[in-house]
Amino acid sequence: MMTKQLISWQPAGLFHTCTRLAADKNVLVKLRKKTGYSFTNCKKALDKFSNDIKQAEVWLHEQAQKEGWSKASKLQGRKTAEGLVGLLHKGNTAVLVEVNCETDFVAKNVKFQQLVQQVAVSTLKHCQSTEGDQSSHLKGFLAGEDFLQMKTEESSLKDLLALTIGKLGENMIMKRAAWVTVPSNMFIGSYMHGSLPADMPFLANMAFGKYGALAICKPNNCKTNVTELGRRLGQHVVGMSPSSLGSLEDESAGETETRMLAQPFLLEPSQTVGQYLQAYDVQVLDFVRFECGEEVQTTS
Results as ranks from 00 to 15, higher is better:
Ala94Thr: 06
Val106Phe: 06
Ser136Phe: 08
Ser135Cys: 04
Ser136Val: 14
Leu87Pro: 00
Leu160Ser: 08
Met150Gly: 09
Thr93Gln: 11
Gln128Met: 12
Thr164Ala: 08
Leu142Gln: 11
Leu87Ile: 00
Ile188Asp: 02
Gly83Leu: 09
Phe105Pro: 01
Gly169Cys: 07
Leu161Ile: 10
Ala120Gln: 08
Thr152Ile: 04
Leu142Ala: 12
Leu138Tyr: 15
Asp104Met: 01
Leu161Arg: 13
Ser155Cys: 15
Met192Arg: 05
Ser190Met: 07
Gln149Ala: 14
Asn185Ile: 02
Glu154Thr: 15
Met174Tyr: 00
Val110Glu: 14
Glu154Pro: 01
Gly169Asp: 07
Gly169Val: 03
Glu82Trp: 01
Thr93Trp: 01
Asp146Gln: 14
Lys125His: 14
Phe147Lys: 09
Glu145Val: 13
Val116Leu: 10
Glu131Ile: 13
Ile173Gln: 13
Gln149Leu: 14
Glu82Asp: 14
Leu161Pro: 07
Phe147Asn: 05
Cys101Asp: 06
Lys151Trp: 03
Thr152Met: 08
Thr130Phe: 09
His89Gln: 11
Ala107Thr: 05
Thr123Leu: 12
Asn185Trp: 02
Leu168Gln: 04
Gln128His: 01
Phe112Ile: 03
Asn171Leu: 00
Thr181Gln: 15
Gly83Ser: 07
Val95Ser: 01
Ser190Asp: 12
Thr152Tyr: 08
Ile188Phe: 02
Asp133Cys: 11
Ser190Leu: 03
Met150Lys: 11
Leu88Lys: 08
Leu88Ile: 04
Leu84Gln: 01
Met172Ile: 01
Phe141Tyr: 11
Glu131His: 12
Ala81Arg: 10
Val121Tyr: 12
Ala177Gln: 07
Ser122Trp: 05
Lys125Ala: 15
Val180Ile: 13
Val121Ala: 09
Gly166Lys: 06
Ser129Gly: 01
Met186Glu: 10
Gly132Phe: 06
Ala107Glu: 06
Lys139Met: 15
Thr164Val: 15
Glu102Arg: 01
Met186His: 13
Val110Ile: 13
Met174Lys: 05
Val85Met: 09
Gly144Thr: 10
Glu82Asn: 14
Glu98Val: 02
Ala107Tyr: 00
Gly144Asn: 05
Phe187Thr: 13
Asn109Ser: 00
Gly91Cys: 01
Glu145His: 11
Leu163Arg: 14
Gly86Trp: 10
Ala177Met: 05
Leu84Cys: 04
Pro183Gly: 06
Asp159Glu: 15
Glu170Cys: 04
Gly83Asp: 10
Pro183Asp: 08
